[in-house]
């Protein structure tokens, strides 16, 4: 691949769409999402289940293919290279070399019958042309780097012999083995305990900074995003509804959904039995989307226009929100 286009974003996504044919009609899982990601920055994508955050990112890197009955549209460029035109074989080459991925459940993303050292070294042999001995040496170094004690012994073990936290460390070692430019972490700590989650997030953040990688951190946990992301994209019902720096999102959300989400969280600073401000209703059926804003039925600020017309993500001073009645910059939730 050619060198980075100077000044341009590392990853550029325009009007990404993913649809699935179902018995009830076309389910628009991702409906026209655009964003840019600069090298060295972390983008947190937050949303609830069904918001399309995972499908969006998987579709960018060719993991949601037309083979699964999905219809994928839009434009994706990594370092200026158009990814949509790539063959399946070129994609395989790209993953692992330029893009590293860490999934939610390391038990399913690791090969249960292959030794850990070999799994880490595999990408190095394929993409970097290392011989087996060199790949094995590098695998042990990587195990040290991700904080696994007794790396030589662990390298010759199988995934089931490790704890959940250790397995996720191994998955991270595999993802960063070939020095990718972009690291995608899809709910990397959801299956882990709080204390282990903390260690894994620290590790991810350290690797991202030291290597100058760009990172996409997909999470449903606003707390995780708050502590680790530079920018945040909030997704609801397949669309990006707000995009801003992390501080702006938490200090002064413009989109009512973001505000409602932040308000509904129980907080340690509140006394016991504080009534939570719940969001009424539930997310829409993506196969039966009506006109207008998807959040309108649950929104306290809705007006007639919200039900008739669909708000597009408009940009104002570097931040974007999809709302006709945006909240003022002052008086944000959680402040």
């Amino acid at each position: 691949m050619s060198g980075a286009v100077s000044g341009g974003p590392l990853l550029s996504v325009r009007d990404a769409r993913v649809g699935f044919g179902t018995v009830r009609g076309l389910l628009r899982a991702v409906d026209g999402v655009s964003f840019d990601l600069q090298a060295g920055r972390t983008l947190g994508i937050v949303g609830e289940s069904g918001s399309g955050k995972s499908v969006l990112v998987r579709s960018l890197i060719g993991l949601v293919g037309t083979g699964s009955g999905a219809i994928v549209g839009g434009e994706v460029r990594l370092d200026g290279q158009d990814l949509r035109g790539l063959s399946a074989a070129s994609f395989r080459h790209l993953l692992g070399r330029d893009i590293g991925i860490v999934f939610q459940d390391p038990m399913t993303s690791l090969n249960p019958v292959m030794k850990i050292g070999r799994q880490i070294g595999e990408g190095l042999r394929l993409n970097r042309g290392l011989d087996s001995a060199a790949a094995a040496r590098r695998a042990v170094e990587l195990l040290v780097e991700v904080g696994i004690p007794e790396p030589e012994r662990r390298a010759s073990q199988y995934p089931h012999e490790l704890s959940g936290g250790m397995r996720q460390r191994v998955a991270i070692a595999i993802a960063i083995a070939c020095e990718p430019k972009l690291l995608i972490a899809d709910e990397p700590t959801t299956a882990l305990d709080v204390t282990v989650q903390r260690q894994i997030l620290d590790l991810l953040q350290r690797e991202q900074r030291e290597r100058g990688m760009a990172m996409i951190l997909i999470t449903h946990d606003l707390g995780v995003a708050a502590g680790r992301a530079d920018d945040i994209m909030v997704m609801y019902a397949g669309r990006a509804v707000e995009m801003a720096t992390t501080r702006e999102i938490f200090r002064g959300p413009r989109m009512p959904y973001t505000e409602a989400l932040l308000r509904s969280l129980p907080r340690l600073t509140d006394p016991t039995h504080t009534r939570l401000s719940a969001i009424p209703g539930r997310p829409p059926d993506l196969a039966r989307r009506g006109t207008g804003c998807s959040f309108a039925p649950r929104c306290t600020y809705r007006s007639g226009r919200c039900e008739a017309e669909e708000p597009v993500l408009s940009r104002e001073g570097g931040r974007g929100f999809a709302c006709f009645n945006p909240l003022g910059t002052s008086g944000g939730a959680g402040a």
């Binding site: 204390t195 989650q197 903390r198 707390g223 501080r247 969280l265 907080r267």
Partner: peptide, 17 residues
């Protein structure tokens, strides 16, 4: 445990477990 909880506020520094 308390120090490890991710707090939904970017201005609160991460606690030390």
């Amino acid at each position: 445990l308390m120090a490890a909880i991710p707090v939904p506020d970017p201005d609160i520094p991460l606690g030390d477990t």
